[in-house]
């Protein structure tokens, strides 16, 4: 059972503003979907190893070689806001 409080907690973790009028619908959606995926609880998985990659590969490494970077102008051309060669964000409070 997923509560509205759970949904608000998840929304805050995921940094998504959740207006009051959407809370009910989303709580129902998530309850339905989580209810569906709960069928996995039926399986005995005690000795089963998890699979992160279906095609097992290891040791993909790069050499310690410097390659060209973007220019400051190229990097900042993407930015919604920029200032003094930097990406500008609202004042951060620590």
């Amino acid at each position: 059972m997923i509560t509205k409080k759970d949904v608000q907690y998840i929304a805050a973790l995921a940094r998504v503003d959740l207006p009051e009028d959407k809370l009910e619908g989303l709580t129902k959606n998530l309850t339905d979907i989580v209810g569906y995926v709960k069928q996995l609880q039926k399986l005995d998985l005690k000795d089963i190893k998890p699979t992160s990659h279906a095609v097992p590969l290891t040791d993909a490494l790069r050499k310690d070689i410097v390659k060209p970077s973007l220019s400051n102008a190229q990097a900042l051309s993407l930015a919604p806001q920029a200032k003094d060669g930097c990406f500008k964000v609202p004042l951060v409070i620590e």
Binding site: I33, Q41, L43, A54
Partner: peptide, 23 residues
Amino acid sequence: MLGTYVLSSGYYDAYYLRGQKVR
């Protein structure tokens, strides 16, 4: 939201880990 939920503290084993095992 669903993905955040299944990874969140206390639910990882019940969902994400199980999902990877069923895989």
